[in-house]
């Protein structure tokens, strides 16, 4: 049973989907405040390289080293997003150009590659990595074994994060204020909410989560370093936020779905199933589905229920009297 295609795909979807989940939750928070950050890929790579550097150079027990690595990755991601925040919130630069610049600056041909090369990180595999939390024997249990008990602590933490973000958005005052800042910054400002502060805070949290997402790659999924190790996941994360209608619980579903797609082609091939150009359509599917969802979201009749934060992408300037 545990070898059935469905179970294998769900289990690997959770594994591959976890960095997507972290990154998309971070991007979701930033976008809910009105800041579109196209630099997710760059921030992830910074998180990946700094997290990896930490476990290689920081001599401590596995648990401590890994905790430090995740913390440093989060800090580095947040620091990277600070550039974007300053440019678009304080200087009101174009969010698109700034986000792209961030990816070029930090991404596969930028700072992450520079640091990886300069510290010669590609030479060795990771000294500490995340392993499954529960005993191996549990994973033989039908269904729940691989799906529920077969993961590392980053996966379980991400489940907690989904609930936290969901509660934050719907059940707390800061969450309410955040939604107001993203939807109607002028209204929020008039009610004494500091629009810029909310935008800075959530852009930085978004960067931190992208950093963690990157570290997930180098410390768990593929515990080594090479240029462009995230392979475009950052862009999928951006797509995912739209796919999930800016809602955290749907981010989880979408992340695991997109994660499963990444494993679909090899699994099908291993089982000798051929469904046309499998590699092509399984790879392209997340992007094509995002386009379809975007068309649905753009239709005016659904916009108000499902749509993006109304002020997404636009700087807030206090109206001149």
């Amino acid at each position: 049973m545990n070898n059935s295609l469905a179970v294998v795909l769900i289990a690997s979807g959770i594994g591959y989907g976890t960095p997507l989940l972290y990154a998309s939750l971070g991007e979701l928070l930033a976008e809910r405040s009105g800041v579109l950050n196209l630099g997710v890929e760059g921030m992830m790579l910074i998180g990946a390289v700094t997290g990896f550097w930490t476990v290689q150079r920081f001599h401590a027990g596995t648990a401590v080293a890994l905790a430090a690595a995740v913390g440093i990755a989060a800090l580095a991601g947040a620091a990277t997003s600070l550039i974007h925040a300053f440019l678009v919130i304080t200087l009101r630069a174009s969010q698109i150009v700034s986000g792209l610049a961030l990816t070029i600056f930090a991404g596969a041909a930028g700072l992450s590659s520079y640091l990886g090369n300069d510290f010669n990180l590609a030479a060795n595999p990771a000294r500490h990595t995340f392993h499954t939390v529960f005993p191996a024997s549990w994973q033989g249990w039908p269904l729940v074994g691989p799906i529920i008990f077969g993961h590392n602590v980053l996966v379980y933490a991400s489940w907690g994060l989904v609930v936290t973000v969901w509660l934050y958005l719907t059940r707390t005052r800061p969450g309410l204020n955040l939604r107001a800042v993203g939807d109607a910054p002028a209204a929020a400002d008039a009610m004494g909410i500091n629009v810029a502060a909310y935008r800075y805070a959530h852009t930085l949290v978004g960067g931190a989560l992208a950093g963690v997402a990157g570290a997930t790659f180098t410390l768990a999924i593929n515990p080594q370093w090479f240029d462009n190790i995230t392979g475009g996941s950052g862009w999928i994360a951006i797509a995912l936020v739209i796919f999930a209608f800016w809602r955290p619980e749907l981010c989880l579903v979408g992340a695991y779905f997109f994660g499963a797609l990444q494993d679909l082609a090899p699994e099908l091939q291993a089982r000798g199933i051929h469904l046309g150009p499998t590699v092509l359509w399984t790879n392209a599917l997340p992007y094509l589905m995002t386009i379809v969802v975007l068309v649905l979201v753009s239709a005016s009749s659904t916009r108000r229920w499902l749509g993006a934060p109304a002020a997404l992408g636009t700087p807030y300037v206090r109206e001149e009297g």
Partner: peptide, 11 residues
């Protein structure tokens, strides 16, 4: 109470 209301439409 502003002339142009400061309300969040979706709230």
């Amino acid at each position: 109470v502003h002339q142009h209301f400061r309300l969040v439409d979706r709230f």
